[in-house]
């Protein structure tokens, strides 16, 4: 982000739009940073959760949507549970991921974490469980990182942790039902 933030150039509509989707009043946040204090990934990101919230308050769209934090977020909901002002920060993170996808569109522009999550869910939809080999190949191809973690493939195969064929499960119908229901609920 820029070193000098010109407040006149910020987007006054950003906070209201995040508030509308998430159903949270983000002016309630007084930046005590209790969310960050308990966040398991705060130490691994440049902008911990309370700063993401500050970005939203000030209308810094780019900073909020480009922050890797929103993809690193584990949705463990510790922040939500502990916020003294009752801000559901996990929901806000969800909202930001949604907005980030909307804004950036197109597969190639998607952050790799989003790609992984999509492939992961695809695999479960198709096989009823994770088909590791398929997901791995797809991810490495689509992310353009062909050889990522390739050194682990042989040891995993040797230990029978990675199989060439999907085994599938018995309750595939039920799984498909879960996906249908969830999609219908989320519209």
């Amino acid at each position: 982000m820029d070193n000098l933030v010109c407040l006149n150039n910020t987007d006054p509509k950003f906070r209201p739009s995040v508030e509308k989707i998430s159903g949270q009043n983000l002016n309630k946040c007084y930046q005590c940073a209790k969310c960050t204090a308990g966040c398991p990934i705060a130490g691994s990101v440049d902008f911990p959760p309370h700063k993401i919230l500050r970005f939203i308050q000030l209308g810094l769209v780019k900073e909020a949507l480009n922050a890797p934090t929103i993809w690193y977020c584990l949705s463990c909901i510790t922040c939500t549970a502990r916020c003294p002002n009752g801000v559901d920060l996990a929901k806000v993170m969800d909202t930001l991921r949604e907005l980030a996808l909307d804004v950036q569109g197109g597969k190639t522009a998607k952050p790799r974490i989003a790609l992984f999550e999509e492939l992961f869910l695809d695999s479960i939809r198709k096989h009823g469980r994770l088909y590791e080999m398929g997901t791995l190949l797809q991810y490495n191809l689509l992310s353009g990182r062909l050889f990522q973690d390739s050194e682990l493939v042989m040891p995993l195969i040797n230990k029978a942790k990675l199989e060439f064929r999907s085994k599938g499960i018995q309750g595939k119908k039920e799984i498909a039902h879960i996906f249908r229901k969830t999609n219908a609920e989320e519209g």
């Binding site: 982000m1 820029d2 070193n3 000098l4 933030v5 010109c6 407040l7 006149n8 930046q31 309370h50 700063k51 500050r54 970005f55 000030l58 810094l60």
Partner: peptide, 10 residues
Amino acid sequence: DTLLGKQVQL
């Protein structure tokens, strides 16, 4: 803005 950790201008 010390909460942002940045210089700001208005």
